[in-house]
Nucleic acid binder design. Sequence first.
RNA 1: GCGGAUGUAGCUCAGGGGUUAGAGCGCCUGACUGUGGCUCAGGAGGUCGUGGGUUCAAGACCCAUCUUCCGCCCCA
Length: 416
Amino acid sequence: MKYKAQRGTQDVLPSTAYRWQNLERTFSELVHQYGYQEIRTPIFEDTDLFIRSSGETSDIVSKQMYSFLDKGERSITLKPEGTAPAMRAVIENSLCPPGTVQRLYYITPIFRYERPQKGRYRQAHQVGLELIGSASSTADAEVIEITVRFYEALGIKNVQVLLNTLGRSECRAKYRDAILEYAQPYLKDQPEEVRAKAEKNPLRLLDSKDPEVQEALKGCPPVTDYLEDESKRRFDELQALLTEAKVAYVISPDIVRGLDYYTETVFEVQSTSIGAQSALCGGGRYDDLIQELGGASTPSVGVAMGIERALMVQEAEGIEIDEPKPDVFVVSAGPSTARATRELVTTLRNNGYATLLDIDARSMKSQLKQADKSGARYAAILGDDELANGTVTLRDMGSSEQRSVPLSEIVSVLKK
RNA sequence: GCGGAUGUAGCUCAGGGGUUAGAGCGCCUGACUGUGGCUCAGGAGGUCGUGGGUUCAAGACCCAUCUUCCGCCCCA
């Protein structure tokens, strides 16, 4: 009987795991520089949390949610994203009392019930951060800046920051009506299903890739025409801050984001190095979310970045990450030196050297071969001759140079 | 959720009804009695994705199902 993983999940093998480790380390080191602290939340959440947190588009979102009934007939959802659960935790644990600011980050699996394909899995992983409790555009700029620095630190080149604003909920409502009206000539000939979807969230018409829809909405006034002065002012402020921080961006009116909790700033980072699944991350401001989930009104901004997507781009752009290699491979002559070999291995490990040895009593030739394959920097050969005069032969696997070293001095020689 | 492909050795792939299913790379052993990469020789390794069906005979043909990939959709 063969046991396979759940459809739409991937095993992370040793040949790629070090890339994940590199990414997670890069991320946590970066966000620590900005004072963010890690938060861990469960992968199961109440379905209601996501229905409420996703607002008007809940039917679209719930179609993608990985939901099921547990043994107590409760509707459980595997978390499809990190923000709502993090906000639930913030509310339940009073992590951000009114008047304070909280910086949190997470690294977590997410689950969405969609048709898997390259770059899209039912279980994927995200790193994300949330800056909670501030309405200032400086907060937005900080989050976007960290995002860009993250991709820089990973060595990723062909990225573009797409920036837009949705305004506050009041002016957004006006804008929705405007789009709907503008699209009427096209919509009235469409099937009921299309019209219902459009009425549910007219903004989504804007990022449609359907040429017919694009044609119908050509010349539609941009959201900036409907922004209140306050929203306009903070959007200008944000742009000035990004320019000051030397963060390149492109204003993209068609970035509206699928989750309806966003207000004011929204942004995505896209790559031109991969295929259809080109979005690397998504983020924005969600000033009303915490209140909608039952907390005090707390303006916040955040971003979530897909780990698989970032690794895909790294690979597509040919970015090499150094694979961890052992320092020394200890070669033994056979049973007569086995005990001394184990002692040498222990000494090396205790002194901080990653050390390998042969465990199948294979020939010396085979052991050197294993040493070569392992990528070890040195082979330390301990045979009968060496044992007799208390030395070890240290072979540099790169240059093939060998020298005889007294057993007691091996560590100090390696240090050089 | 829709459309089109795909699945044979660890990897990349050939075989398109007829004995015991192949190649290259990789792996193991030896030539080389204590020394990796090169060469040569030998060897191990396969429920031909899974389940049904057609046939004297199925890896091959038919049906179903699953996987992966490419679009759509959606987004991470």
